[in-house]
Design a protein around this nucleic acid. Sequence first.
DNA 1: CTTGTATTCCATCATTCTTTGGAATACTGT
DNA 2: ACAGTATTCCAAAGAATGATGGAATACAAG
Lengths: 219, 219
Amino acid sequence: MGDPEKKTALFDQLARVGKALGNGRRLELLDLLAQSERSVEVLADASGLGLTTVSAHLQTLKAAGLVAARREGQKIHYSLAGEDVAELYRLARDTAATRIADAERAAADYLGDRPRQVGRDELLAGLERGEFTVLDVRPAEEYAAGHLPGAIGIPVDELPDRLDEVPAEAKVVAYCRGALCVFAHDAVELLAASGRDAARLEDGLLEWRLAELPTETAS
Amino acid sequence: MGDPEKKTALFDQLARVGKALGNGRRLELLDLLAQSERSVEVLADASGLGLTTVSAHLQTLKAAGLVAARREGQKIHYSLAGEDVAELYRLARDTAATRIADAERAAADYLGDRPRQVGRDELLAGLERGEFTVLDVRPAEEYAAGHLPGAIGIPVDELPDRLDEVPAEAKVVAYCRGALCVFAHDAVELLAASGRDAARLEDGLLEWRLAELPTETAS
DNA sequence: CTTGTATTCCATCATTCTTTGGAATACTGT
DNA sequence: ACAGTATTCCAAAGAATGATGGAATACAAG
């Protein structure tokens, strides 16, 4: 009727995925990889972690089947192993943000004051009426790897110098990586300060993709 | 542009859910709780763990927002905090079973030889034609907490003595907790040995519920 | 074949988890 | 109030994890 030892072994195996998700640094890496594939060095840079530390975490994630490695020349590009992994990450993230009071607080604390937000449905409806200009404020490589159809791509840190590329009279909806990404917050603040009508998309590219809404790869 | 310390703090909070999922014993508890709420003692008994050990794990799960406690008299009944948690568990489990070769192997090893299986769609189609008798072989409390509409409930360990309650000429589809539950395997073997036409439902009540298919609570 | 670059392996130390008894707590029923 | 039951808290010991620097490996380019 089911060997208890084998049962233990099975659940220990299943727990490997949980263990992999059970570290803040690894979640940061997953968050980055959910946007686009990256090399170890780039990940270390983007996350502010040590190179060997990132490498070790990637090995853990790989062993848990969450990321895949692709060699190209001297570089090894890591990426999520599939959209189911992105979904798993999103679900774990949302569960924490919803069900753990401290997590909710930490999110609020990190994001700061919420700017005006637009829901996905609202954006879709407005787009049909040609009402919004959509602005992607993630780093250029992430924009290149896929963005909302018709979105303009201007990374937040370049935004102050490139404000004139944003139509002045349009209603602008800015988005970034996901629900817990700050880029769009900062962008909306910048745009509002320059007198524009700007709002933030409630979530980001990750959720958009997981909702199986269309994305665009070319500029 | 986002305080790195606050970012670390946020992701550490999010990781609490992962940590909670990162232990085989806790996954076993979640697996049990996904079927019906239970007291600490009953969980300890069902899982074969020590009482204090179970209590400690439940505290961890509760701190991660995955389980809820409900007091009734002297007993405290623990249950999953919501269907999103069940979905999270399922997704983590399936990710592991799909993407980690060792996990796949451990599952095969635990479940033993697969009996004939019926998919959910196949079952639904057959039910409309009145083709199948559905048999729930989980423990009685789990059957009572919810089962497939029209299913007969006979726990596996009582099945040998109650074989006559299963219509002899019908095609029987047996199910239990979920994809990784052995009860239905054993039941099918028993039924087949007694000359019946039996198959196992590919997954179990957990997946059925998550697919938002109807369940029944009364006998 | 040699040099250079990207990444992984290894060893180590500090930290955190897991399990387990025994004691403490919370509540019920009388 | 008292006795009884269910559960949690506490402390301790062994095991596992995380970060890090230096050495080793894998591959590419010349």
